[in-house]
Nucleic acid binder design. Structure first.
Lengths: 211, 211
DNA sequence: CCAGTATAGTGTCCGCGAGACACTCTGTCA
DNA sequence: TGACAGAGTGTCTCGCGGACACTATACTGG
């Protein structure tokens, strides 16, 4: 049990340019120097796993209060050539209007990559990313995580684009709108977005109106 | 990061006497001496998390080749009064016909407890157990984990009892049988079980017959 | 031996959710 | 002012799942 260390790695997703993207940092030191990796770091002596994840997330993106969920723990004895390192992986979703703050303090070189076009990753990070993607896609079906990726006000078209970007396939507009309407968690606003041809009604995420 | 340790804890379920039960061990040393806890132990230097779980499971029950799945990692800094201990929790299912070997090598005092009647547990093990229960119940709905709890040959009535024990509610016999039949994973045998009043046909778990 | 009983086994109706599918409307821009 | 791009809107159908009740039969005990 001599020198065992525990890290927290965070798969940070956003949707930009109509594609699901993930934040990766370029490693400056061996092993895997020059390769991209999922951001993460060692846990401090007196912080919980989740607190460590929140801290790392803030360091990388400058943002707090995101959706964050524990994913899985990876502990193959040879996953890190430097020694025994177990990692507890998390994944997070950041709204597209908050990610201007990207490439924060300590990230030597960080960047967003479409999940369909990630470069080779260090360690077992390819596996972690695959695990996060699978979880996100599953959660999308039976929860409302998708809303975490949008600004406070958004159109139904934008919401559908987010779903399509995550699932990587086209959805039927009418079926999608029906499904969302059934959830009763959107409040239509008296505002319209005038960026396209015909203005689209803006909506706000809201708990279902209690009886 | 000085002295951080990592354990693997395993919530081991079985169905006995028509109730979902969990294996607990009585602690012989402080902290929480005399209280029950979920079996577990430290990971060895050169074994993966899953290998550690398999090893612990074998030590506790004498059984290998069970259903085993990683559950969640718990890392609150104060979850163990002795110091910083992070635990990676797993849960396992053991078939009712294999659990004669219970109370294996190192368990000072071990016993099965109905999940509705567990004593107060050491550390945050109550929380871990709750987490495992929730996962098991969810998995039961959309996977075939339930079959892991039965011997190779079983009746449909026994299968339904297992489901009812886990979900802790009665199920409709005809709906249940229809649902199972739709899965096409059971092979009816030319054998009947004569323990009750009217003999019941035995079935065997089998992959769906490929076209 | 027979009456009682406990468990095995079986089919229909209904409601909900989800997929397939096409047209009109309208503000903007050229 | 005409073309266009995106907004918005209903119906049919199918599969899944819940609610619901009776017959069949082997074993048991008197």
């Amino acid at each position: 049990m001599s020198d065992l260390r525990v890290t927290v790695d965070i798969v940070i997703f956003t949707v930009r340019d109509g594609a699901l993207q993930v934040l990766l940092v370029k490693r400056g030191v061996p092993p895997f120097a020059g390769q991209y990796a999922i951001p993460g770091g060692f846990i401090h002596a007196d912080e919980s796993l989740e607190a460590a994840a929140i801290r790392e997330l803030h360091e990388e993106t400058g943002v707090r209060n995101l959706f964050l969920e524990q994913l899985y723990s990876f502990g193959d004895p040879r996953r890190d050539p430097r020694g025994r390192v177990i990692t507890v992986a998390y994944y997070a979703l950041i709204a597209s209007d908050k990610l201007s703050v990207v490439a924060g303090a300590d990230a030597a070189e960080a960047g967003w990559f479409a999940v369909t076009k990630v470069p080779p990753l260090a360690f077992d990070h390819q596996q972690i990313l695959a695990c996060a993607l699978e979880r996100l896609r599953n959660k999308l079906e039976y929860t409302t995580v998708g809303f975490q990726l949008l600004p406070a006000k958004f159109t139904l078209g934008e919401l559908q684009s987010v779903y399509e970007a995550i699932l990587n396939r086209k959805l039927d507009k009418r079926n999608f709108r029906r499904k969302i309407a059934l959830l009763k968690i959107l409040k239509p606003l008296r505002q319209y977005q005038h960026t396209g041809r015909k203005p689209a009604q803006l909506h706000r995420f809201a708990a279902p109106t209690k009886s």
